[in-house]
Design a protein around this nucleic acid. Structure first.
Length: 229
DNA sequence: TGCCAGGCCGGGT
DNA sequence: ACCCGGCATGGC
């Protein structure tokens, strides 16, 4: 069995990964949203869901005038479910989005300025307390809507880091965050681009079943084998 | 056709 | 503290 802790990697390794990804894919320009509220809605909609399907759902919400908090909350439950249906898990996500929107309006008057005036560790705690918002969704919101320098760990991040022996197979969310925190400066623009690039390379080369590692632009990395047996 | 996608919750050990 | 089934549509 592999050990459960973060594997010791040279600090340089993550920087090497970042440079190679940036050269291979270019800047990704995340998050693709026109407003903080739209971004945060998208963060829930994309949970375990292809972004293509999320785009459809967002377009339908836009047509319904529901990409502003007031317009969103004006929708009946059935209307909301219908609008986001293409994104899958639509009943679950309708419930989660309503909980989020109610919180956003009552606690912060639907204002991103007010929301992100709260110290981010407190804000993160509040987000995690909402139904349907877990670590990845909360951190995505902090990073992409609030430019808070938190490293987002998603399935692709874990898969890419695991394949390259930076994390053990049983790595947890905060192991991934600690790895990044130790190896990278706390820079929101860097974390923004890095996460988007990890998704890009993951989609193309690092699937669950058939990793196409031979073609992966990361190639061989220095100093990455430290997994204890 | 089957497998997968930018997770999270709730109930069971 | 983990482990697992459920949630659902659309693309390849």
């Amino acid at each position: 069995m592999l050990s459960c802790r973060v594997v010791k990697g040279r600090p340089a390794t993550l920087r090497v990964i970042y440079r190679r990804l940036l050269r291979a894919f270019g800047p990704q320009g995340w998050w693709p949203a026109r407003s903080p509220f739209e971004m945060m809605v998208g963060a829930v909609l994309t949970q375990a869901t292809n972004w293509r399907n999320v785009e459809r759902a967002i377009a339908r919400l836009r047509r319904a005038g529901a990409l502003r908090p007031q317009g969103f909350l004006a929708l009946r439950r059935g209307e909301l479910e219908g609008a986001i249906r293409p994104a899958g898990y639509f009943r679950q996500k309708a419930k989660r989005l309503r909980a989020f929107a109610r919180w956003y309006v009552t606690r912060y008057a639907g204002s991103p300025r007010r929301m992100f005036r709260t110290p981010w560790p407190t804000l993160r705690h509040e987000l995690l307390g909402l139904h349907g918002i877990g670590p990845e969704t909360a951190d995505s919101i902090l990073l992409y809507a609030g430019a808070v320098p938190v490293f987002v760990v998603d399935a692709y991040t874990v898969r890419v880091f695991t394949r390259h022996r930076l994390l053990s197979r049983k790595a947890t969310y905060d192991m991934g965050q600690r790895l990044a925190g130790r190896s990278l400066p706390a820079d929101a623009a860097l974390y923004n681009e890095f996460h988007a690039l990890l998704v890009a390379v993951g989609k193309r080369y690092c699937h669950r079943r058939s990793p196409d590692c031979a073609q992966c632009p990361l190639g061989d990395l220095p100093h990455t084998i430290e997994v204890s047996a």
